[in-house]
C-alpha cells in the first residue's frame, strides 16, 4: 500500500456535523450481497472505501426512517485490547409522534438483525452491517414516550450498534425499489 500525506482535506471547506434527516434500513436477512472490503488496496484512501453496492433479495428493498433534526448521530467507538482493536459504530436518532408505524418498527427491530445506511451532513455514507455481522438495537439514548410537559415531544429515540473490524465509507447505491427476481 502506498502512503501519502494526509492534509486538512475538506471539500470546499465543508465540514458540518451531524447526519441527514433520513436514514435507510432493511432486515439483514433480506440482503443478497454486501459490498466488499478492500482486499489489496493500492492507497490508504482505497483502504477506507467499500467496493460495490448492497444488493437485495428478490422483492426486498431498503426503506427510510425520518429523523428529527439535530437528534441523529453516527458515532465511531474504538474498542478492544492491545492487538485486538476494532470498532463499534453507533447510530442514534429520534423519531417523533409515537404512532403505530414507529411502534411497530420498534416491536420488530428490538431483537432483529438489521442493516442501516447513514448519510452525514457532508454527503458521505456509512453502511452498518456486512455479510458476517448485522446492526442491532441497543436502546433509547434520549428516552421514549410522551414527555412530561406539554412543551415536550412525543416520540422514540433509538440506538443501533454495529461491530466492525475496520471503518469504511460507502459509495454504493441505495435501492428504494424491490429487487427483481432473476
Amino acid at each position: 500500500m502506498e502512503f501519502t500525506d494526509i492534509d486538512k482535506n475538506l471539500t470546499n471547506g465543508q465540514n458540518m456535523g451531524g447526519i441527514a434527516q433520513i436514514c435507510y434500513y432493511c432486515a439483514w436477512e433480506d440482503v443478497a450481497t454486501f459490498p466488499t472490503v478492500p482486499a489489496t488496496p493500492a492507497t490508504i484512501e482505497e483502504n477506507g472505501v467499500l467496493t460495490g453496492s448492497i444488493a437485495m433479495k428478490a422483492g426486498k428493498q431498503m426503506r427510510s426512517i425520518y429523523i428529527t433534526d439535530d437528534t441523529g448521530e453516527f458515532e465511531i467507538e474504538p474498542v478492544g485490547e492491545t492487538d485486538g482493536k476494532s470498532f463499534v459504530t453507533h447510530l442514534r436518532f429520534y423519531n417523533p409522534g409515537l404512532k403505530a408505524k414507529i411502534l411497530g418498527f420498534m416491536n420488530w427491530a428490538k431483537n432483529e438483525n438489521l442493516v442501516f445506511i447513514v448519510k452525514d451532513n457532508d454527503g458521505q455514507y456509512y453502511l452498518m452491517g456486512d455479510d458476517t455481522r448485522p446492526a442491532t438495537y441497543a436502546g433509547a439514548p434520549d428516552g421514549s414516550g410522551t414527555s412530561k410537559e406539554t412543551a415536550g415531544r412525543r416520540g422514540i429515540s433509538m440506538e443501533f450498534v454495529y461491530k466492525t473490524a475496520n471503518l469504511y465509507a460507502y459509495e454504493g447505491d441505495i435501492p428504494l425499489t424491490p429487487a427483481a427476481s432473476v
Partner: peptide, 20 residues
C-alpha cells in the same frame, strides 16, 4: 431496467433516479 422493479434508487454522485 434490470435487477430491480423500475422505481427510485439513490445513486451517489447523481442523486435519486426513478427508473419508472
Amino acid at each position: 431496467v434490470v435487477n430491480i422493479v423500475p422505481g427510485p434508487v439513490i445513486i451517489q454522485g447523481t442523486g435519486t433516479v426513478d427508473f419508472s
